[in-house]
């Protein structure tokens, strides 16, 4: 991996943005990487925008701020509008809600998470785990896939089979 990987996750409250960051941070931390995650949100725990900034580093993380996102997960249109100027690496977006415009992403990956979660899994809430699978594939050079899956199981212990399936679908979507 490079010395420092910056990941930006954003959506609205209730989409699991914080959970995703926790899983990635926990996986990185268990691999012996330096890992930080900052959470920003408005007053409401549901409904407002939520942003997780995850930084992984081979040593200690100094600045925990994402300034040049190696990976940006845009889960809503407003999240994309607000944070797209920061993306330099891969943009992952849900085409059902985000139409990417002129940004500086090196690569764009459409992750139809909401459609897949509702259609193939019959559970719209699993869209975030689909995103997690997709992000994990993008970060495969940094984060060990089995570490992410283990962290997912520990952080979200309910419905392990469904989560594993959603993760797998996401992984494939980012192929």
């Amino acid at each position: 991996m490079s010395d420092r990987i910056e990941i930006l996750l954003s959506g609205h409250g209730g989409q699991g943005v914080v959970r995703l960051g926790q899983v990635l941070g926990l996986a990185g931390s268990r691999q012996g990487l330096g890992a930080t995650m900052l959470v920003s949100h408005g007053t409401e725990t549901r409904g407002g925008y939520v942003r997780s900034q995850v930084v992984l580093a081979s040593g200690e993380v100094d600045s925990p701020v994402v300034e040049r996102a190696d990976c940006f997960c845009a889960m809503t249109a407003s999240a994309y509008e607000r944070f797209h100027p920061l993306v330099r690496g891969t943009l992952l977006y849900d085409p059902a809600v985000v139409a990417p415009g002129a940004d500086r992403a090196a690569r764009r990956v459409a992750v139809p998470a909401s459609a897949t979660a509702a259609g193939e899994l019959g559970k719209p809430l699993l869209a975030n785990v689909i995103f997690l699978g997709a992000v994990s594939r993008i970060l495969a050079a940094t984060l060990d896939r089995t570490a992410v899956v283990a962290a997912l199981r520990d952080r979200i212990p309910r419905y392990p089979e469904e989560n594993a399936r959603a993760f797998e679908l996401g992984w494939e979507l980012a192929g």
């Binding site: 960051g21 926790q22 941070g25 931390s29 330096g34 890992a35 930080t36 995650m37 900052l38 959470v39 993380v61 925990p64």
Partner: peptide, 9 residues
Amino acid sequence: QMVTDGWEA
């Protein structure tokens, strides 16, 4: 808030 709400090892 960044220290209290932030996640780290």
